[in-house]
Design a protein around this nucleic acid. Structure first.
Lengths: 349, 349
DNA sequence: TTGTACGCGTTATCAT
DNA sequence: ATGATAACGCGTACAA
């Protein structure tokens, strides 16, 4: 079967009896400076419609020097939805946000880029002629700077490096976390434990701070050993922390876990120890990515990852359309978390 | 910050003191018919290296009439990794397989394409100038035919329509499923139930057939009501089936569930009913996508989705490189499932 | 409104 | 045997 040729602007021009320039002008409407009479405008539109004409995005990209591709550097290059759900979901939502605007995402994954060294990343994206980049929790300030120096619109998300003035989009853990803890307190819990990341970045730190502050505000004492800090959001450490909590002489009646992965680990520990959720232990997780897809479904604090992705893409596309890079305009967007109540919480026995 | 210009073939040519044509010839090596002396070859290579030159993929795509983009029509357009894990994961693996070959995937999702009507899909991909398409379990023969008629390389995966002669890649449920059932039987189970999709397509049907055949071969009787058929792979129906099984007078001691989603639903039903897995009920799932990420981690039959994706991409890229469409060469690839043993099975009480 | 140059890599043709 | 020249793919933008 011969490859079917699709219509080009030449075809449309011929059919409408005008030049290709007019076709371009008409189809780009207000974007173009070209003035066209109403009559020919309609003829061109009709011809384009009849031929199912759509401008070749590749030719357009070449001419406009705009690939309509946006680069994404996830925080982790492990590409599995279940090991590392947050960066993974961000990638998914970025792709969804892009496609609506006729953009694409190219992601720096372990398979695609040789190493995560800054030089390699910059090269990788430059070679692909990306129009801008989204950096998820960049590891170093230098990395961000290198992209900015290249003149690319850059948006940092989740854990920005504020030293480099780029727009950033972050999540405010507090609203959802406060709601979660007050939910527990309202139901009568006074023995509330915490499992979370012990790192210094505000994105991680604020979950713990919020826990401490909210309990203090309600005069709830946190016993020794009820705060378990991990070095990462992974299942193993969640499981270990869960076992540790069960082994305590003073056992809590409820638990806030600062990540779905950690919560899954804790849940596995409880299951193995025959500690039922919520009968023997109430449990609230943070992320709400797969919290609903566990047995039992977990009450969880949802991060607005889809909104983060949309805003990130919108910022870059705006910068592109204004032809002004994102630097300087260090606009910071802060999006709130929200509590979703499911069946993993009940009053203490 | 001014946008940094990346080197073009003109820059390399100037630096090496040759024409752009030679640059192209040298960099495409064996691909090109051009003969170049060793000396200039090295000069060009050196110049390209010094300038960090990489051919502009957009210009190349325009000239070669190859976008390096492959279209993907997932079986379901619900784009969430936890509601519809199989089509979702296929998309992820396709993207991974593509990026290694410097291809991209564009996926027909609910957000990207107006409707799933065949006309819309074809238009969508034609407008994006895809080089080929991967169809996951196409709904109609006509849909496949339309793509073939357009002269695009087409590969069908998972549930192909054999009426249209395209290469296809399918999964053989049997090896893993037989292993799973014999695993149960070896441990002493004789009361084995089944939850699965009741549809007529071999991909679904074979899981049930394999269940029936394997039990028969081992002289294990299947009681009335122990085979629960659903109309889809979703959590709700899994949960309902789980509850139904528990309500039976003759309760099974073990259960094979033909999809992770269904298994999750069943697990939730068991959890709610205080039926412990594996203590009171052994459970094996099919898919092994998030089976390990449950409490308890489930023994599961893994589908080789990554391999399916790789083969699909490889078939299309091969067809492209040979400039021969995929039609006619109705090669069928069959990839085996494999059992992964975890902690959800134990001998009957 | 139209003609024309341009963006950049590739390839067929031509010159040495 | 080597390498240069020119045309091409397709849409866009500016001068005419």
């Amino acid at each position: 079967m011969a490859k079917t040729r699709v219509a080009t602007s030449t075809d449309v021009a011929r059919r409408a009896g005008v030049s290709r320039a007019v076709v371009s002008g008409v189809l780009n409407g207000a974007m173009s400076t070209m003035r066209v009479s109403e009559g020919t405008r309609l003829r061109v539109l009709a011809a384009a419609h009849e031929l199912h004409y759509s401008p070749n995005p590749i030719a357009r990209a070449l001419r406009r020097q705009r690939s309509n591709v946006i680069g994404f550097v996830p925080r982790s290059s492990r590409r599995t939805p279940y090991e590392d759900p947050v960066p993974f979901l961000l990638g998914v939502h970025l792709a969804a946000a892009c496609i609506e605007l006729d953009y694409h995402v190219v992601e720096a994954t372990a398979e695609s880029v040789r190493s995560r060294e800054t030089d390699e990343l910059v090269r990788f994206f430059l070679d692909r002629h990306v129009d801008g980049v989204v950096l998820d929790s960049p590891e170093t300030t230098a990395e961000v700077q290198r992209f900015v120096d290249r003149g690319l619109p850059v948006v940092q998300i989740i854990r920005p490096r504020p030293e480099v003035p780029t727009p950033s989009i972050v999540v405010d853990a507090r609203p959802g976390t406060v709601a979660a803890l007050e939910h527990l307190i309202d139901l009568g819990h006074r023995r509330i434990a915490f499992i979370g990341h012990g790192g210094p970045h505000p994105a991680d730190r604020s979950r713990l701070d919020c826990f401490t502050a909210t309990l203090a505000r309600h005069n709830v004492t946190v016993h020794d050993g009820w705060v378990r800090l991990t070095s990462d959001y992974d299942i193993e450490q969640g499981r270990a922390a869960g076992h540790t909590l069960l082994a305590l002489r003073e056992r809590p009646t409820s638990l806030f876990v600062a990540g779905d992965n950690l919560a899954l680990g804790a849940l596995q520990a409880f299951y193995q120890a025959m500690v039922r959720v919520p009968d023997d232990m109430s449990l609230v997780s943070y992320d709400d990515i797969f919290a609903a897809h566990l047995a039992p479904p977990l009450t969880s604090v949802a991060q607005p990852l889809a909104a983060v992705a949309e805003r990130a893409i919108a910022l870059i596309v705006d910068a592109l359309d204004r032809a002004g890079p994102t630097e300087g305009a260090a606009m910071d967007v802060i999006l709130p978390t929200r509590l979703t109540v499911r069946g993993s919480v009940r009053p203490p026995a």
